[in-house]
Write a protein that binds this DNA or RNA. Structure first.
Lengths: 223, 223
DNA sequence: AATCTGAAATTGTCGGACAATTTATCGTCG
DNA sequence: CGACGATAAATTGTCCGACAATTTCAGATT
């Protein structure tokens, strides 16, 4: 049946790909966990080739790591890797926010941004880890979409941001109120079309996140 | 025979992957060209699965584009895509140069950087497109390596820089002397450990490249 | 010449097969 | 009893063949 149906959108590999990313958020998979091809083949009811393709795509994005003749594993960030990733995200998000501010006037951009922020700011949403994570991703994605730099959109390591979120989900990194203040500052700067302010606000937010992560105990990291 | 040998380093998919990237530089493949799986299977003497994996890896990096049920093709940049890519490279290379300047004192970094620059500055090398392209890649790679941000190193869209180089190889983008001046400025700033200067120099160089590309005729672009 | 139609080409996916390698198991020995 | 090493099991890397889904192409029709 999977042979003829070909799934809805992206084919069998896409099913596995999305299934694993989703499973990460739902806690079915945790950093460091082994992903055995045979198991995935059974769970998702697709051929091993499709599983393989999904895994290599995930590996290309950095969400899983593959070593020769060793099972793929959900990547687990070391302290150094996390620091590197945060530093990079600071640059990329700053760039993304700047572009978004520059183009907020065009089309329905202002409205899209407002909606994304409204969802993120909803106290109801903030109480649910899964819903908040989705809203946060949507917020950043909207920002990037508005910025309209397709190469940036292609590169934005959403999945590795996912990794940070998931790996440190049980630790409170940044105070909730402070975090929402950051998002508000980013949103306001974009809304008012101030590219300079938007870039700074985004960078400040990420830097604050990095500082908080630096204070986490070693137990939160791998290797 | 390929079944048991497993190739030297990265397996059969790696052979195909490297073969295509190399073929791009050698002019065997040109942007827009179709890559038929059966042909690659014959040319590289590997199974179709391996070809497929190589293609999807290349697609993940943006060097080839794959559409459902349509052959993979060497990606060909439109004017807008090129502009987006250049803007992104400006940010990333600026970041990379800044990090390199910050760490030039450590280990053998200064020496490595000097060697990479020396090769790039060799008039002999500059006369050969292939050798110069390699030297240029080595220069940037060294810069990134010295910067020691592994996430940046993982993300650096080397292959898409390749695309720019290859797609516009028959056009003179920036005057050779001016270009070498740019590289020298970047190198000097890194060597003297001035992160601010290095970032600016790298950004200036990319921006200059972007300006030159803007002046190219439509015929140089796709779509 | 433009359009339609059906055959050929090509991709997407599956299942099976087997070598290479890693991982787990277990018996032996100090 | 625990370290060590050999053997078995598990797992990955790769190839092959098959067939449906889709696109592409060539020829026929209008």
């Amino acid at each position: 049946m999977p042979k003829t149906l070909a799934a809805k959108s992206d084919g069998s590999p896409g099913v596995v790909y999305r299934g694993i990313v989703d499973g990460l958020y739902r806690g079915r998979y945790v950093p460091g966990q082994r992903l055995v091809e045979a198991d995935l083949t059974r769970d998702f009811e697709v051929g091993r080739g499709s599983v393989r393709e999904a895994l290599s795509r995930l590996a290309a994005e950095g969400l899983v790591s593959m070593n020769l003749h060793r099972s793929a594993t959900i990547r687990s960030l070391s302290r150094a890797e996390t620091r590197d990733l945060v530093a990079l995200l600071e640059v990329l998000n700053g760039f993304s926010a700047r572009l978004a501010a520059e183009r907020v006037e065009e089309g329905a951009n202002r409205k899209m941004m407002a909606e994304a922020y409204a969802t993120l700011a909803d106290p109801e949403v903030q109480r649910d880890f899964l819903r908040f994570a989705r809203a946060r991703n949507a917020f950043y994605k909207t920002m990037t979409t508005i910025g309209a730099n397709h190469e940036l959109a292609r590169l934005m390591p959403r999945t590795n941001v996912d990794l940070i979120r998931v790996q440190f989900r049980s630790y409170t990194t940044v105070d909730d109120d402070l975090r929402m203040e950051d998002y508000r500052a980013i949103y306001d700067a974009i809304d008012e079309g101030s590219s300079r302010k938007a870039e700074t606000a985004a960078k400040t937010h990420i830097r604050r996140l990095g500082d908080a992560i630096d204070k986490l105990p070693d137990a939160a990291f791998a290797g």
